[in-house]
Design a protein around this nucleic acid. Structure first.
Lengths: 369, 369
DNA sequence: GCCCGCTAGGCAAGCGGTTGCCATGCGATC
DNA sequence: GATCGCATGGCAACCGCTTGCCTAGCGGGC
């Protein structure tokens, strides 16, 4: 690594700095106090417009003017020291930031934090409990006000490391005694089948069932997805014309399953348990000259990035990572009690907050009559 | 959004908290001072083992023991207030966190920060200068020690917002007067062609040239990639048997280009300017029954996630986002002077730090004789 | 006997806010 | 004219840590 810093033509030692002098002076309450002839405490009261302080509007106005003119911004470090609140929360993930699946979650929570003027401390732990512990410890020394744990795949875990007393939520996962934000998979399973049925399909195949996924330590949600699908099928008085099981939800399963299904020629629609399987189905279809959706429709789950490359564009039930991130952060901020916009909204606590999985209607499902 | 918090069955108001009492008492220097009969300042000196302080080893040992026993961890807020350094830096990106391309960058810099016990404050700005300014301002109020700017696609930008006096680096981009960490595209272009030539290819086609990409505001690096390719071809005494230009580097360009190239039957290898184009080429190849790499080899650039889905697995020049993130953070920490492991390594400043783009050799290039 | 110097460690100021409590001035009241 | 009370706003402690400077105590040299 170090060597890379030395690559390229040699130049004399110099570091990039812009506007050196801007660091010289940082505006404090004392500056405003001096300028206004008031005391630091009065200025503080005004700028936080503290209820109960009896400062006449004229004075307050003057103070605010001076503050604006000087470009005052409170030092969060100092404030944090005094109040014990940092106006920042932590986000600990297994590998959310780096994966193709769930990085939108980070975006969602960053957005929510920004709305409340909160900062987010992020740590990735690669599922190593040593790193989780270290991250929590480090964050606590920064006096974070709360903590969010995010998982790449929704499953049950134990949380190593002490989050004692800190408000906490887990996004896309399950930890005993901690509130979860989860995708509403059961509902999505239901919706998926209803959609297909509403488009006239009655001969439906399903790819991806695997009992292994029912273990909560493997997945906390897949069981619900499948249960939703099964229940909706039963409600519609249908059963699958063909099923191909498989633990590894990768394109190869789709290849293989599609070959079977195409050979039998009995399904008008295929539900794939995720987009990667659907990708394999697409690949096989192209190979065989089977036209989607005219000869067979495909309905999938997840809407990961991969989906954007598939032609025709695939219709899929989206995993709402962005929304989950945002909602989790909003709920956390509400719990903390500091979130500007969120404050004052009463939220009734549950174990699980379910976020809808929207049907992203694109071009892979045909209507048949 | 709010409504999502109310989804699911109603439960009484309760918030998830673990070990309520752990928050009760936080160990401070004063606690250690009390226990050891020493003064707070002495304890501080010991725990920071400040050079120049003349504390006998026996005392130091005792203090360290007590600190460990009590589980002391310094309050970074308080320390930061006193020292003016937060041991945190900021990362401002356009949309790095959320995109399929570059999120590994975040991982790299998180890892480097962790090694030095630094925290990272992350903000995404969606390219809105208003949000960039806000992010910088917010971070400054937290007294960050330095700032990293990360871009999804390497291009030249102006930095709105005042980073006055703060050490800064830009990752995968160019800002006047700020040091950049960039992929070594010229070298990669060279290497790509050399590789193909070394495998016996002399009739090579190229897909993706576009003069529009030469504008530094569009791309700071594509020009170098193409220049590397061109120079290596010239060095080898070759010229492309066919070229298909295109500004939009999407699968459709690959579809279209592959059709042309397959029709002419004169190329043994295709260089695609990026993986998405290669994806289109693959798609067309499957449609036409053209076997990669036996009938035609494909060499690509980027190694984005998409590449992992392509069969046969594609050989490509990887954009080293993880390393770029790590190196940028290490250099920033060195500049700050606080980075544990990094401290003391002298880095000579340049305008650009070039990170090698490794050839990821997989299965899409055949050797011909 | 006095002074010097060294060792070991303490004092207290401050970083920039927040906050409980007190002080001043003024008109109104008795 | 003394008292009261309210409207304004100041004082100072404190959050936990760092750091410049000072001190107590002791042994040794002249």
């Amino acid at each position: 690594m170090a060597t890379a810093c030395l690559a390229g033509p040699f130049r004399p030692l110099r570091w990039s700095q812009i506007g050196e002098d801007a660091l010289a002076k940082r505006i404090t309450l004392a500056d405003i106090a001096l300028r206004s002839g008031l005391s630091v405490s009065t200025v503080s009261m005004v700028l936080n417009d503290r209820p109960g302080s009896r400062i006449p509007e004229s004075t307050a106005l003057r103070v605010r003017d001076i503050a604006k003119e000087l470009g005052y911004a409170p030092d969060r470090t100092a404030r944090g020291l005094r109040t014990g609140r940092s106006e920042a929360f932590g986000f600990i993930s297994d590998e959310v930031t780096v994966t193709r699946y769930a990085s939108a979650m980070v975006r969602g929570l960053l957005d929510a934090a920004e709305d409340s003027n909160y900062s987010v401390l992020i740590a990735e732990t690669d599922n190593q409990s040593r790193r989780v512990e270290a991250a929590i410890r480090l964050m606590r020394t920064r006096r974070i006000d709360g903590i969010l744990v995010g998982l790449m795949r929704a499953r049950q875990i134990d949380l190593p490391g002490d989050i004692g007393g800190l408000p906490a939520l887990i996004v896309n996962g399950k930890v005993d005694g901690v509130v979860s934000v989860l995708p509403d998979e059961y509902r999505a399973g239901l919706d998926a089948v209803h959609y297909l049925v509403s488009r006239g399909h009655r001969r439906i195949a399903f790819v991806g069932r695997a009992p292994e996924h029912l273990d909560p330590r493997v997945s906390w949600t897949i069981g619900r997805r499948v249960a939703g699908i099964d229940d909706a099928m039963a409600d519609a008085g249908l059963s699958f014309v063909h099923e191909v099981g498989g633990v590894e939800w990768e394109p190869e399963l789709g290849d293989h399953a599609a070959a079977e299904i195409f050979d039998r020629r009995d399904a008008t629609a295929i539900i794939t348990a995720n987009d990667r399987i659907a990708f394999g189905v697409y690949r096989k279809a192209r190979e065989r000259g089977v036209e989607i959706p005219f000869e067979v429709s495909v309905l999938s789950f997840d809407d990961e990035q991969l989906a954007s490359y598939m032609r025709p564009q695939i219709t899929t039930m989206r995993l709402p990572y962005l929304e989950m991130g945002r909602i989790a952060a909003e709920c956390l901020l509400e719990r903390i009690g500091g979130g500007g916009k969120v404050a004052g909204r009463l939220v009734h606590e549950q174990d699980e907050i379910l976020v809808p999985m929207p049907l992203i209607e694109r071009d892979s499902v045909a209507t048949i009559s």
